[in-house]
Nucleic acid binder design. Structure first.
Lengths: 109, 109
DNA sequence: CTAAATATATCGGTTATCCGATAGTTATCC
DNA sequence: GGATAACTATCGGATAACCGATATATTTAG
């Protein structure tokens, strides 16, 4: 995702999560554990959040709950666009492994 | 994609391409240019192919045309599975950038 | 309130990822 | 055949991405 002002897919997924719901660092880590199978280290998640904050893409309230900024929303939109071009044939990839798209778009936190 | 025996998304996309059609290095590079917007450097594509070959995931014939091996097919299937879990809600990501004037997501209320 | 548990944050270092430069190889064209 | 272009390949290095260890802060339990 070099087209965007983010580190990589980790930052992309963080922004993506925050676009749905404001979350704390540990909540974000839990979501990433579900996606990747292993939980990101504190040394991974908090520096990423710090960088996103410094770039003005997210903000944190007094309870350390992070939210997307307007700039972050724009960034995420750009990233989603790049992502959809990069993986334009993602449907074929999914069907490649015969995995059902269970509840695509809705998941419980 | 640390769950798989590949470098990253670059190797993943190489395997994915080869699963559709045997290709030379430059053909692969052209596809990646379409996906990413910029063409990968020779110093990117050929070391990746070399690594895949050394791992037994691809083979090259005398004309330097690369093909997936059986092992490569299995590896790709595993990678597709991990990919589909990692981006299980990819449909929402795609629609995110199509509805950019309406905003990408809903924040917590 | 105090102690334990959890969450947040930082730092240094390791590995991954990728590129530019360079060189050798193959194809094309006259 | 020989020159030119395109492709293939390697190398060293720059940066990204991430983790483990550690430290601090906050919450929870008794």
């Amino acid at each position: 995702m070099k087209c965007c002002d983010m580190k990589g897919f980790l930052s992309y997924l963080i922004l993506w999560n925050l676009s749905k719901k404001s979350m704390s660092g540990s909540e974000i880590a839990c979501d990433l554990e579900r996606r990747r199978g292993n939980k990101p280290s504190p040394g991974t998640i908090y520096p990423a959040l710090k960088e996103l904050k410094e770039k003005g893409l997210v903000t944190a309230d007094k309870d350390k709950v992070y939210s997307l900024t307007k700039k972050g929303e724009r960034e995420l939109t750009d990233a989603c666009k790049a992502f959809s071009v990069l993986f334009f044939d993602v449907k074929d990839m999914f069907s490649c492994c015969k995995l059902q798209l269970l509840g695509c778009g809705k998941r419980r936190l």
